[in-house]
């Protein structure tokens, strides 16, 4: 399984022989490898191609990008701003995210002030106001924004990024072109991770990369952060190290446990659960991983449905506060019973 470039010693990257090196290593990879041009952005090709057109032709409409975290919304907007404005980027872009104060005052004052500022730009180019995590803005602030959008539309365009476009009020949605970003596929994630592993000379095993992709669940930021923390901690990406760093129950163990349940062997299944419990994982993490694994388990759809139901209800109880080992063991017992019933049905038919 080991891939050939493991011969490159990991720690050498961190040896502080040259100052530049040590400085480089202190930048999070997620920033270091943040795409600078549209071509580097992974996934959502259609939307990005369209924005690329606007970046060159200018006169882009107001846009809203919505989608789950870690799929390149902010990166896309920054690329758009960079391509559109070039050298004027610093003075012609106002970026506000949820950590900035963003009440009505800010919208009224900061944003309006910026919109009123005169910046010399070539025709067709506009100042850009970037509102990251726009769904966390209060409704009042959004209301205040909507007229501003129209009044200054000749000089200023807005780019909003949000996780959930339903939290953006209707009048703003009506004034913007909405682009919905989809989760990245595992293959897209893997390709990017491989590329970075090459550049950073990271030694890895295939199951390690698989583990990174599994823990990330379509979130590029998470993937790169996990990759870097594993690398910083162990200098080698193997599935064992990844799950140590990300502190999640190993999915292979969980899978094994569920397969024991399918066979109806409660004692073997319980042994694994007790082991996980002893390792000190939080019940929320255990049940979360059980769900993730059960979703992709190779069993009959009917049985899978029943499994998912029990897992969901157990999760609910854990969330409500009953996070004892008893609940998790009870889940295993129920799953065993379900698969035994299923077998009985099969036998009868």
């Amino acid at each position: 399984m080991e891939v050939d470039n493991k011969t490159i010693p990991g720690p050498s990257v961190f040896s502080s022989n040259s100052n530049e090196r040590s400085f480089q290593s202190s930048i999070p990879w997620i920033e270091k490898y943040r795409p600078q041009t549209f071509d580097d952005i992974v996934g959502n090709e259609e939307a990005i191609n369209r924005l690329k057109t606007f970046a060159i032709s200018g006169n882009a409409p107001n846009i809203i990008l919505s989608g789950p975290p870690g799929i390149g919304k902010t990166t896309t907007i920054m690329c758009l701003a960079r391509t559109l404005l070039g050298a004027a980027l610093k003075e012609a872009v106002l970026e506000l995210n949820a950590s900035n104060e963003r009440g009505i005052d800010t919208v009224r004052n900061k944003i309006k002030m910026f919109a009123q500022q005169k910046v010399t730009l070539p025709p067709g180019k506009h100042k850009i106001i970037i509102l990251d995590e726009a769904d966390s803005m209060t409704e009042g602030a959004q209301q205040a924004l909507r007229r501003t959008m129209e009044i200054y539309s000749r000089t200023t365009r807005f780019a909003l990024a949000c996780n959930n476009s339903e939290k953006i009020i209707e009048p703003i949605q009506s004034r913007c072109a909405i682009l919905r970003y989809k989760k990245l596929t595992d293959a897209q994630l893997l390709a990017k991770i491989l590329e970075i592993c090459d550049k950073e000379q990271v030694s890895y095993t295939n199951d390690g990369l698989e583990a990174i992709v599994f823990t990330a669940q379509g979130d590029m930021r998470q993937a790169l952060n996990n990759l870097q923390s594993t690398f910083n901690g162990f200098y080698h990406i193997s599935s064992l190290n990844v799950f140590k760093v990300c502190d999640e129950p190993h999915p292979l163990l969980v899978k094994d446990m569920l397969n024991q349940c399918v066979k109806g062997d409660i004692s073997k299944a319980y042994k694994i659960m007790a082991h996980l419990w002893k390792l000190g994982y939080a019940p929320e993490d255990i049940i979360g991983n059980i769900f993730k694994v059960a979703k992709n388990l190779e069993i009959k759809e009917q049985l899978k449905l029943e499994f998912v139901q029990e897992i969901g209800l157990t999760h609910l109880r854990i969330v409500e506060g009953v996070n004892s080992l008893l609940q998790l063991s009870g889940l295993l017992a129920k799953l065993c019973k379900l698969s035994m019933n299923q077998e009985k049905v099969n036998f009868n038919s």
Binding site: E284, G288, F291, K295, E301, Q302, K304, L305, V308, Q309, I311, G312, H315, L316, V319
Partner: peptide
């Protein structure tokens, strides 16, 4: 997470 499970379950349940 439970919300995601809810949707997953509703989808799977109706399909099955």
């Amino acid at each position: 997470e439970t919300n995601m499970m809810g949707v997953a379950f509703a989808i799977r349940g109706l399909m099955v």
